[in-house]
């Protein structure tokens, strides 16, 4: 059930993108390739049907995008839909697939810290209604 999926979506000040310098001091961890943020790594993803499951059971399906009406869309609109993505740091809505149960779901995830804010099933009525 989608209640207010828009509230946390959007730009995120991405800590892990500025890992090197903090007050002019070179971060030793960065030089050694160790993550500098104490972020919540996704190792467990919560499937709305099956509950918390290991990340290895899931397949990433890319960001949720609205398809323009194929017959009405201009070439530019169609190209924009087919090719362009939001690759910048953000909390985004993404498709994920729980392979063992064949469940497609939506996750709101921070693409810098790997933190998942919520997961839920797609609800066509709430999306387009």
């Amino acid at each position: 059930m989608i209640v207010d999926c828009g509230s946390q979506i959007g730009k995120y000040p991405c800590v892990s993108m500025d890992p090197l310098i903090d007050g002019g001091i070179i971060d030793d961890n960065y030089a050694r390739g160790i993550p500098t943020t104490d972020s919540t790594q996704v190792k467990i993803l919560t499937c709305p049907v099956n509950g918390p499951r290991p990340i290895q059971e899931f397949h990433f399906g890319g960001e949720v995008r609205d398809m323009p009406a194929p017959h009405d869309a201009s070439d530019d609109q169609w190209a924009e839909y087919v090719f362009n993505r939001h690759g910048e740091p953000a909390v985004r809505r993404e498709w994920w697939y729980h392979t063992p149960s064949g469940t497609w779901l939506i996750a709101e995830r921070n693409n810098c810290t790997d933190e998942v804010l919520r997961t839920y099933l797609f609800d066509a009525e709430a999306e387009h209604g």
Binding site: C14, S16, M17, P19, G33, P35, T37, S39, Q41, Q56, H59, F60, G62, G87, P89, E94, N111, C112, T113, D114
Partner: peptide, 13 residues
């Protein structure tokens, strides 16, 4: 890595 992530962390996997 199998999904989008803007982070240079490494994994045991």
């Amino acid at each position: 890595d199998p999904y989008e992530l803007i982070s240079m962390r490494s994994t045991l996997d």
